[in-house]
């Protein structure tokens, strides 16, 4: 009797399920399905909420871990920077002492011979004024006891700054390479192709390079050393764009190697990079 009742219930349930299946309209859905969904969907929301809480906790842990790692790394970096700063400060002090010594001493025969061979010596000068209003075109330096002279080349540790165009006692006025009136014989370091670097609107321009010249963005441009003022090899800038211009030459723009806004100390080159052949023929050419 119980078995028969069980069979009957089973058949009834199967029929009901078949009715549900056949009565199902995919476009509308059944009412039963809607009820079931309403009953079950909150479970999905609960899981989603729990998952989002879990994600939040996991994210918090991960962020915490990242911050700890970053903190450790920054502490290490700070320590390294402090050590580097102390080293640089000691070097600066040494340089000051060396400058004082050099200023006190008369140039000896070795220095004179070195200058005669075209090798340059230098002195350190402080930048006391930077002409910002004119677009970083000139600066004024303080040479201390070493009086700067006209046409002396000024450079920084990164590259060419310019040349002294006017002097007044221990001070000198420097025409930056970015000045419109400035021109430096230069060459592409990679290909040794020579041209002329002129000052432009806040930047530099490499001119006199023909269309067939091999120039690429990223090429370094250095002083060519053939103009009788700037020694060979001082970095000037990096090529940022190469565009064909009407006429014979390419239009090449450079980004200066030196960030003029950060200059504090500069090196004033006292020797003149005149070719040896000229020096041999004209001993007075070294001035």
């Amino acid at each position: 009797m119980r078995d028969r009742w069980h069979h009957g219930l089973f058949v009834l349930l199967v029929l009901v399920q078949l009715l549900i299946m056949t009565g199902h309209e995919p476009a509308r859905g059944s009412r039963l399905e809607a009820w079931m969904l309403r009953a079950v969907a909150p479970l999905g929301s609960a899981v989603a909420s729990l998952a989002s809480v879990g994600d939040g906790v996991r994210e918090a842990f991960r962020t915490n871990g990242t911050l700890r790692t970053e903190n450790t790394s920054l502490r290490d970096e700070l320590g390294e920077t402090r050590r580097e700063l102390m080293r640089l400060m000691s070097i600066e002090e040494e340089l000051r002492r060396a400058r004082a010594t050099a200023d006190a001493a008369e140039p000896g025969p070795v220095a004179r011979a070195r200058a005669a061979r075209g090798q340059t010596s230098f002195f350190v000068a402080d930048v006391v004024y930077l002409d910002l209003t004119a677009g970083l075109r000139t600066l004024v330096l303080d040479g201390g006891d070493a009086h700067p002279q006209r046409n002396q080349v000024v450079r920084s540790s990164r590259g060419l700054v310019g040349r002294i165009i006017a002097t007044g006692g221990r001070y000198g006025k420097v025409q930056l390479v970015t000045d419109r009136a400035s021109s430096v014989s230069a060459m592409i370091e990679r290909t040794r192709r020579k041209g002329l670097v002129r000052g432009g609107d806040g930047g530099l321009e490499l001119t006199l390079l023909p269309h067939r010249a091999d120039v690429r963005v990223g090429d370094r441009v250095v002083a060519a050393g053939i103009d009788g003022v700037y020694p060979r090899g001082i970095p000037i800038g990096i090529v940022t764009s190469v565009t064909p211009a009407p006429g014979l030459f390419l239009r090449i723009e450079l980004r200066p190697e030196v960030d003029f806004g950060l200059l504090e100390d500069v090196y004033v080159l006292t020797g003149q990079p005149v070719p040896e052949a000229i020096i041999e023929g004209q001993p007075d050419a070294t001035r």
């Binding site: 399920q17 549900i20 199902h24 859905g29 059944s30 039963l32 399905e33 079931m36 009953a39 079950v40």
Partner: peptide, 13 residues
């Protein structure tokens, strides 16, 4: 089974 159907796709039932 109907709850499972509500959770999964396909024909209901």
């Amino acid at each position: 089974g109907l709850v499972h159907d509500a959770l999964t796709g396909g024909v209901y039932g």
